[in-house]
């Protein structure tokens, strides 16, 4: 069991000694019981930090934001920045370092193990607890909710996010300091179970399913915005009339290709989501944030899981496993499948 005081002590200590310039973590938010991301810069703010089942967010996103901010303001980073990272978040950080987005020494990883459980899926909670819970806590294999009608204990697996149920690496291997027990190897649900079920269907059923999903997309781009891997300055779905940078020339602006129209219609949505799935192949570490934030419930993990499983089974590739490894699509083996080529 992680005691949140240990996390706070570590953060306070790092800031007090000037070993890091900020700590990216979670604090209590104002929406119900949910935690919210926070960047603290002073030791006394460490007491704001929380660690509970509502710490869904993959904070690696804010390392990307920090890097962009530094690049924009042309500031030297100075001391490293610390981040609280779950197993999936730490894998995301590894991918970013694999891609040389920042260097290992520029980040101080405060690992937190999800131990035997994971984070909450708020949508699953409906009907399980009365009223609006005001607090959630880890307790062994259970989550304990504070509700207006008293404490309510639930087996975590009943309301846990699917991504956590299927997680094979709930312990942040890459870390500077880590809290919580390493329970790698715990089996809550078979990985890729939903994917396997989905693939049992025929092509017509699969298409009908995805058409329905993609027709619903409202192109709010929350899936992209929340993803630490979607760090490009220029994205194929953005309006092409804006300059990427002040120095972008008229010719560059005039000649940009409009790959995907802004209309939220099936064809454009599908091109967007499939392009994103391809861009994430070998990079997605299945933090499931895209699926969590989607306001219209598009099962985006299915797409990314498909790529993840192919990478694993065909190319023996695990995203986020090693900082030094070449990325999936920048490497090859002689034995790569090729029988489909005429």
């Amino acid at each position: 069991m992680i005691n949140v005081r240990d996390i706070r002590d570590a953060a306070r200590d790092l800031l007090a000694k000037g070993e890091v310039r900020a700590v990216i973590g979670y604090r209590r938010g104002s929406r119900g019981m949910a935690a919210e991301p926070v960047v603290i810069t002073a030791p006394e703010q460490a007491d704001e930090l929380v660690w509970d089942p509502t710490c869904f967010h993959n904070l690696a996103l804010y390392l990307v934001e920090d890097r962009k901010f530094l690049a924009h303001s042309r500031k030297a980073p100075g001391a490293p920045i610390a981040i609280i990272a779950k197993g999936c978040d730490a894998r995301a950080i590894v991918v970013l370092m694999q891609e040389h987005y920042f260097k290992r020494e520029e980040v101080y990883i405060i690992g937190v193990s999800c131990e035997g459980v994971g984070v909450l899926d708020e949508r699953k909670l409906a009907g399980h607890v009365p009223g609006t819970p005001t607090d959630a806590a880890f307790e062994g294999d259970d989550f304990v909710f504070t509700t207006p009608e008293g404490e309510k204990r639930l087996p975590a697996r009943e309301v846990m996010a699917d991504r956590c149920l299927e997680c094979r690496a709930p312990f942040p291997k890459e870390h500077n300091v880590v809290f919580g027990e390493d329970k790698t190897g715990r089996e809550l649900a078979a990985p890729f179970a939903a994917l396997a079920r989905f693939e049992e269907q025929g092509a017509t059923e699969r298409w009908d399913f995805w058409r329905r999903q993609f027709e619903r997309c409202i192109r709010c781009f929350a899936c992209r915005s929340v993803c630490p891997m979607c760090y490009c300055d220029e994205c194929v779905v953005d309006s092409i009339t804006f300059p990427v940078a002040p120095e972008t020339t008229a010719d560059e602006k005039a000649n940009r290709i409009r790959w995907i129209e802004r209309s939220a219609v099936r064809s454009e949505n599908i091109t967007y989501h499939m392009t994103r799935a391809m861009h994430l192949a070998g990079r997605c570490i299945d933090c499931g944030e895209c699926e969590r934030v989607c306001p219209v419930n598009i099962p985006l993990r299915l797409l990314n899981n498909k790529m993840e499983r192919e990478a694993r089974e065909r190319f023996g590739y695990e995203p986020g496993a090693s900082i030094g490894a070449a990325s999936l699509v920048a490497s090859f083996n002689d034995s790569d499948p090729g029988s489909f080529i005429r």
Binding site: I240, T241, P243, A250, D251, K253, A254, R256
Partner: peptide
């Protein structure tokens, strides 16, 4: 002034 997509056109 020729600065953007439409003005260039």
């Amino acid at each position: 002034m020729r600065v953007g997509r439409v003005s260039a056109a």
